[in-house]
Write a protein that binds this DNA or RNA. Structure first.
Length: 183
DNA sequence: TAAAGGATAATA
DNA sequence: ATTATCCTTTAT
């Protein structure tokens, strides 16, 4: 299992988002290793993207998005659910990719369709905020057997307030994969 | 379709 | 200190 290098994240966010599909999200705790295959993501392009948290500038919460690429940005939404993002591009850009769904590969609890459930299934919470994805207990890896993927582009979800940005097709998922949250 | 839930950021 | 807001889920 090959861990993705820092350089993988330090590129155009849309490109990284598309290439993240089919990769393995690996999370190790003391006793157990959980693996989920990424099947659905959304790209958040940075401070100019009104749908992204970083569009409001650097704050206590969003400063991780402006940090170096290859880090996890985990936040609590609606007081009840966690969302996992991956920081991309260079420092100061504020770009990130939201992981919306994974397909269970190993030791996954329950359903994983949707950002909140994904985090619940992998037992992700704010303790993993700002975690380095090049660490040994939480990272993204190249799958052992690369498969050919059909990728579908769709508008993002839950961002109607973002004006023209709400219509941009920055959500990507693997075609006909039963684990994507909505089609 | 609407309410829940808690942290966050803006206002004071 | 108080309030509006929120990249969702679940239940009615």
């Amino acid at each position: 299992m090959k861990k993705l290098p820092r350089a993988f994240y330090d590129r155009d966010t849309v490109l990284v988002a598309r290439e993240l599909l089919g990769k393995w999200l690996v999370l190790r705790t003391e006793k157990i290793e959980r693996i989920g295959k990424i099947v659905e993501v959304e790209a958040y392009l940075g401070a100019h993207d009104l749908a992204a948290h970083s569009s409001k500038g650097v704050t206590e919460r969003t400063k991780i998005m402006f940090g170096p690429p290859g880090h996890a940005y985990v936040y609590l939404i609606y007081g009840a659910h966690h969302c996992l993002n991956v920081v991309t591009e260079g420092e100061g850009n504020g770009a990130a990719i939201l992981l919306r769904a994974v397909e269970p590969v190993k030791n996954i609890l329950g359903r994983t369709c949707g950002p909140g459930l994904l985090c619940r299934a992998l037992e992700i919470d704010r303790r993993l905020n700002a975690h380095d994805l090049l660490s040994d207990d939480f990272f993204i890896a190249e799958p052992e057997a690369a498969e050919k993927l059909s990728i579908v582009k769709r508008p993002r979800i839950g961002v109607d307030y973002a004006g023209v940005w709400a219509k941009k097709r920055l959500r990507y998922y693997i075609k006909e994969n039963p684990f994507v949250s909505r089609t």
